[in-house]
Design a binder for these strands. Sequence first.
DNA 1: CGTTCGATTGATGTCAGTCAACCCGAGTGG
DNA 2: CCACTCGGGTTGACTGACATCAATCGAACG
Lengths: 234, 234
Amino acid sequence: MACNCGKCGHEICTYRVPIFSNLSSEEMIEVTKLIVHKNYEKGENIFLEQNELDSLIIINKGKVKAYKYTAEGKEQILYIFSQGDFLGENNLLKNTKASYNVEVLEKTYICTIKKEDFQKLIIEKPKIALKVIEELSRRIERLENSVQNMGTKNSEIRVNLVLLEFIERYGIHSNEGIVINLPLSREGIANYIGVTRETVSRKLSLLYDEEIIDIIGNKKIIILNKEALEDSIK
Amino acid sequence: MACNCGKCGHEICTYRVPIFSNLSSEEMIEVTKLIVHKNYEKGENIFLEQNELDSLIIINKGKVKAYKYTAEGKEQILYIFSQGDFLGENNLLKNTKASYNVEVLEKTYICTIKKEDFQKLIIEKPKIALKVIEELSRRIERLENSVQNMGTKNSEIRVNLVLLEFIERYGIHSNEGIVINLPLSREGIANYIGVTRETVSRKLSLLYDEEIIDIIGNKKIIILNKEALEDSIK
DNA sequence: CGTTCGATTGATGTCAGTCAACCCGAGTGG
DNA sequence: CCACTCGGGTTGACTGACATCAATCGAACG
C-alpha cells in the first residue's frame, strides 16, 4: 500500500507537518528518510482500540475520525483529525495499546515513522520535543472544550457549539455567508456531540427556519447569521 | 505566602514531582533553586480562567479541582489534581491565558517555577521534555475517558464509572472493602460527571440499598461489591 | 443549643430519546 | 430511460429519565 500518488513526495510531506516545521533543510532530509507512506480509502480503519502500534502516524492529506464506544455501546467521536495532525502518540514513550479507533472519512494519505526512530529523533532534536508538547497542549485544550460542551444539557446549544467549531476549522468565507463542507454525516455529528441523529436534524431544521443557516444537501451548510449562533450560547 | 511548613523542604518537593524524577542529584539541586513555594487554604483559587500565568505550578501536597463553566452557567469539573500533578502547562511555550479555573479542595502546598526558567530547563534537559510529554499523554487519556463517559446518557452508569475511577485513584483496600475518601462533595461529583447533585444522591442511595456500597457520612464511601459496579457498565 | 450548609427524598414538568413512517437522492440493473 | 433498492435524512407522536422545585433532614460548627 505504498504511496504512489505522485503529489505527496517525501519533502512535501515533511514540510506539511507542524512538528517538523522548525527543522533545518538538512534535518528535514534526515527525517524524510525515516518516513513510510500509506493511503486509505473512505471507511477503512487505520487502527482499532487495543491494537499495538509500532509507528507514529501523521496525516498528510485527508480526514479521519477517532472514536470510542460508550458504556451503552454508542460511538463517541473524540477527534476529527486532518492534515498535519498526528496520532498514536500515547504509545510513543510508554508501551500502551491504542485507546481509540480511527476510521477514514475520505481518501487519506498518511506518513508513518517507526516508534524507535521517532524516539531517537525526539531525544536528538529537542526542537521536535517542544513542538510535540505544543501540539499536545493544543489537543488538551480541544478535549477540555469537548468535556465542557458535553456538560451542557441543552442539545440546541450543543449543536450551535459544534457549528461554531466547524466555522473555525472548516469555514470558508464567501459573499453568501460562511460555507462549511461538513466532515461528518448527521449521525457523525450526533456521535460527536453526544445526542441522536434525529435531534441534530431537528435542531438544524430549526436554525434553517430561523434563517440562521442554509442547508445544501447533506454535506454542506452555509452560515447566514453567525452572531445569532454566538448569542444563543450566551 | 512563602512556604514555612517545615515538611515541604525544597529537596523533597523536587523528588516528589514525576517530571523531575529521572534527573541526577546535581541536576535536582539545580532545579530546586528555581522553585518558589506557596500554599493555599480550602476554597481559595490558585488562578482563574483568562488569568495570565507566569509560572508552571506543581502540586506538592493537597488536592485541587480545575473547572470551566458550561454555556448554561453550570460548573464543569475537568480534573482533580493532586500530589505530583502540574498545571498551567498550556502557556509554557505559547503565550495564552489560563483556559480554566483552579480551586483548592483542601490545604494545598504548591511549587512554582517561572516560565522562562522552565523553558530553559526543558531545552537544556531533554529528559524533562520527555517526562512532560509522557504526563501530557496521560492527561489526554484521562480527558478522552471523560468525553467517553460524558457521552453515556444513562446517569446510573456515569455514577458507577466515577466510583470506579475513584477506586483507582483514591481506593484503600481494607477488610471491610475498598475505602474511598471522597475528594468532592455530592455537588462536586455531580459537576464532574455532568448531572445534578440530586441525581448523584439518588443513584448512591440505590447502590446502598443494593448493598454494593456503604455510605459513611458525606466524605467516605466503602465499596462492598466492585464486581457489581463493573458488571453494570457491561 | 441553634444556625448553617450540604445531603436526601418526594412531586412535578420537560426535553431529548425512541419508535415509526416517510422522503429523497444515488446507484443499479433491466 | 425508467423502476427499484438502499442508505441517510427528516418529521411526528409518544414516553421516560433526569432536571427542577420544594420540603425536610442531619451533621458540623461555633
